[in-house]
Design a protein around this nucleic acid. Structure first.
Lengths: 213, 213
DNA sequence: CTGTGTGAAAACTTTCACAGCG
DNA sequence: CGCTGTGAAAGTTTTCACACAG
């Protein structure tokens, strides 16, 4: 079985979203061509990406929307409900807790914060708990993944606590490179990096050729 | 001049952050080795990334922290202050407006929302304005970049308005693929995609070999 | 003698053409 | 016949070894 490009996984997420829109719209069949248009990649790419995992289409016909959707959910680990917590219930943490898409495939168990002012407050589906309860919650509630929305300076420390307590995946919103045992899956969501890339591209309009001043 | 990998730009952002920490700590010299350790890449990679843009070090010695920092800021377009707006001042938009790192290299001009309930409210450095004033603000205040923090369904429409009004770069937080003229720079910050990738990696612990079940 | 800068090799990803299945 | 699935080619990125400047 070939090695699967990281970028393929990211695209799979897009295909899935496109399929969900199609299914909502009542579509039953689709094609690599249509998926490509919906997600801004090439039809070659769509077929290759799917082929890494198996044969889900019918030659000469295309793909069956609900079937492919189910398969992609399976591949992306949405077959089961991951159990989540949010650490850091500032405005970012609260925005995350309220995000409707979360309920699809994830079960938000609790939110944590140091600020006594918001302890006990209800946000989205959860109540804010004190940091002291972090380890106990992770263990007792079988938490799989933590969304780390704490300030930069505390990210590494909190991440270590989480991993020690048994969390297996981290979605890190702080602009730091976490150093953790490699069996822990980490994804970074760094909007400042995105902003800097924007600056670079805007400064280098033919962002393929010619740099340097 | 060679084509510069996209990933290089992302790493440049990390190097810059590491350098800023070093400078704060009073360090004057550093090396590709040290930068590598601080950012979790290899020293080869650091040198190669920097070499795309020029020769900033001294052989046998290393790099001068403030010099390299200045150069990277230049490369990443932080030499000038980009003028920003935030469209969508829900909790996410408010969290962004309050983010202290923004002030470094970006000038937040205004925030916009449709909700009459928060119009006029002061968040971070800005006051929330109604969507009707969007175009006028972009033009009159010479806005370069917009942070798009509106609900999924409105992202494409708002993006088009922004581009028509003259915005040149978009940082899109909605999980949609925006289709816009290609001279507009777009970066996506999609935390749900990150979450799905986590699920995939956790489901495939030796996330290099063996898939399929 | 040290650590950068770089050409060349290896690894990886994307593109493509088309065989082949329904 | 049409559209998927795939091997092979093209293109891109990373790794590496080492020449060379200070």
């Amino acid at each position: 079985m070939a090695k699967i490009p990281d970028a393929t996984i990211t695209r799979l997420v897009r295909y899935l979203r496109a399929l969900e829109r199609m299914e909502e719209a009542g579509a039953v069949r689709t094609s690599s061509e249509e998926l490509a248009r919906a997600t801004g990649v090439t039809a070659f790419q769509v077929r290759k990406d799917l082929a890494y995992f198996g044969s889900y289409g019918t030659r000469g016909v295309g793909y069956t929307v609900p079937v492919l959707r189910r398969e992609l959910r399976q591949i992306l680990g949405l077959g089961r409900k991951w159990r989540l917590i949010i650490v850091g219930m500032g405005r970012l943490g609260q925005a995350l807790a309220d995000y409707p898409g979360l309920a699809e495939g994830y079960e938000l168990v609790a939110g944590f914060d140091v600020d006594p002012g918001i302890l006990g407050r209800r946000v989205g589906p959860v109540t804010v708990r004190p940091m002291e309860e972090l380890e106990a919650t992770v263990r007792d509630e079988h938490v799989d993944v933590a969304l780390l929305a704490v300030p930069e300076g505390q990210a590494q420390g909190v991440a270590e606590r989480l991993v020690r307590a048994g969390v297996r995946g981290l979605l890190n919103f702080a602009p730091v490179v976490l150093s953790l045992p490699e069996e822990v899956a980490v994804e970074n969501v760094d909007f400042m990096a995105g902003l800097s890339r924007l600056g670079f591209f805007m400064l280098n309009p033919r962002w393929r050729e010619e740099m340097m001043g």
